[in-house]
Nucleic acid binder design. Structure first.
Lengths: 218, 218
DNA sequence: AAATAAATTTAGATGAGTCTAAAAATAATT
DNA sequence: AATTATTTTTAGACTCATCTAAATTTATTT
């Protein structure tokens, strides 16, 4: 089987591949995992030997289908545990990441199947991220960033890009959460900051930096 | 913090101290953990440096109060997760040990507090073992072994000594489970095998080996 | 009490995952 | 295109938890 550490590398490579939609660089991985480039190189060689990644010296990595399967399983575990922590143990959405980082590595397919059933087969985690099914299939909702919203057209908050507690706490205070309706009221051309109405309430102002981290329905 | 491995040593030393009620030997630990005596010695020195055990060369170890606190926390986590797996995810009592071995090391006091509440503050796990509270206090029910039961006196099954799936499956098939009433019908003096009635049902025969692994009310 | 057996510790080695410092390859600039 | 800068890899070393084999201590027998 794969170690805790190997699983974390695979998960991070998967996420980076989604963003950059191509080969992932050694430094990008080192950055995300808080480790050094040299360590990443060592691990990539190991993962390559195990046929979990395609690795070409100096060129970067991509996941093999085997590697992608493992990554999706870990991501599924993570998101299901997040649902558990929020729905059953009453944690807030900005508190669950660290715990889920540990829970995701618990090694039991059957347990996760039952957890999924117990939670009522949720399709999205508390941050709006889609939960892959047990085959690794992920239901991709078409989405775009709030920073690209068209004025006065109704849309829905789907999720977030930044998952940090600070960000989540901030937007929650503004009333922005997955599932809520959203409408663009005004764009300040100068700095691209915007004013939006959530669920028909009084408009609030947010910077472009914030708008770039919120996903809405396309 | 303490590593996964350190926690397992502390937990095992705690359990052995309960049984033998004195110093625990290097070999006993090696046996239980499936490792070699030399490895145990190394770890004992390390745990001693961290003030988690009292260690005297060639004499054995006991836990310090600090070590006992950690051990009880791990045991509490383990037993609460077992309750979760059986009550909420519908696992059988002989299926949950391995999963709980991993879940017990998830590092979040708050999560365990909420899990405890969510489960309704259970006092015993599915095998009848008492669950320490968050201060490490453990409610000890006076118990003795089924092999010491007095003929025709009513008693109750409290728990088991052997936790192996094979054993649990066997006694469950016989109808022996924590909470069930039990009465001794006959003792075969030759091999100390006994015949017992569970919840007033038809008596069943069990060997002394089995009777020595079942805990009943004193 | 001396000899033998058993338990425990020491010494030295290994693999996993990490690091720093230096070398090599690729990318960017002048 | 040649030089400089950046990225990545190699080389060698460290820590953690483990191992085997040999040495030492304690326990058991004769």
């Amino acid at each position: 089987m794969n170690s805790f550490t190997e699983e974390n590398y695979l998960k991070e490579i998967f996420k980076l591949m989604q963003q950059e939609d191509s080969m992932v660089s050694t430094n990008a991985i080192a950055d995300k995992l808080g480790t050094r480039a040299a360590s990443v190189t060592d691990m990539l060689i190991k993962l390559s030997d195990k046929k979990l990644v395609h690795y070409k010296k100096y060129q970067g990595v991509t996941l093999t289908s085997k590697g992608k399967k493992v990554a999706l399983e870990i991501i599924r575990n993570h998101r299901l545990w997040e649902v558990f922590l929020v729905e059953k143990l009453q944690f807030k959405w900005d508190e669950v990441h660290e715990m889920a980082e540990e829970l995701e590595h618990i090694n039991s397919k059957e347990m996760v199947l039952r957890l999924d059933k117990y939670l009522g087969y949720p399709k999205f985690d508390p941050h709006g991220d889609p939960i892959p099914d047990d085959k690794g299939k992920i239901g991709v909702k078409k989405s775009r960033l709030l920073s690209q919203l068209i004025p006065n057209k109704a849309a829905q908050v789907l999720g977030v890009v930044d998952h940090s507690p600070a960000f989540l706490q901030y937007i929650e205070k503004l009333g922005i959460m997955p599932g809520h309706g959203i409408k663009l009221k005004e764009i300040i051309e100068y700095d691209k900051s915007i004013s939006i109405s959530i669920n028909g309430k009084e408009p609030v102002f947010i910077s472009n930096d914030v708008a770039k981290n919120i996903l809405i329905s396309a």
